[in-house]
Amino acid sequence: MFILNAAIRSWRQRLGDQPDIQAGDLDELADHLREGSADLNVSGLSEEEAFLVSARRLGDPEALAGEFATAEPGLRRRVRLRWMLVGALAMLVLRFLGDVVADLSTGGLAFMSVGTPVLGWTSGLLRLTIFVIGGLVIWRILASDATAMRIRNFGIWSLGMMSILVIALAFVVAAATMHGGTTWFLARSVNPAHLPDLAYVTYWLRTGLLLLLPVVLILMLWGLVRHRRKSD
């Protein structure tokens, strides 16, 4: 038995594999397909025939994607740049979160008079853990079909980007405030003689994390490109 919604979903998936057709275009074309099918159905064709004729009129996915690519040659690059921006913002937020949690715990340990090397390693390990786990979670969320669907349904892409920017900014401001607070707390709690050692260990751990950034970013982008627009 023919089910129109299932047929349109399957058609969308085939078209969604084309890298030059964006999520909004898919929605628009699917709407066209639906309305065209309805018109043909009213004029006497069966639902299945109407769908097939309407899909045929829209053209085959490869040819359609070629037309879209010609119409807007730089689009694919711009979309990738946007995703890179999202990835960079995510990294920024994660770094700040990692700093805050690590500093809070370091401050707590210092308050309990634990030795300086332990403080440094604890801080570094916490940052690394938060960075890796947070990165994996964000990757999973961004790459999931459901999120792609939600972003598209949110409507205007720029509005979605604006929301991400605002959320990231809020995170950064909050984290920076907490960061300042914990630094002040550390300066008061840790023995000044131990501060150079603490700074040395923390510096190398932070450098190590920074070296991981491009690798994680590339992995995230690879995941996004692979899973892009297979929603619905």
């Binding site: 066209h32 309407s54 053209g59 359609l64 037309e67 879209f68 119409a71 807007e72």
Partner: peptide, 15 residues
Amino acid sequence: WSDGMLYPVLRRLEA
């Protein structure tokens, strides 16, 4: 018009 042809044209005009 072939139905699929219009949408890339609309994208171009918008760009």
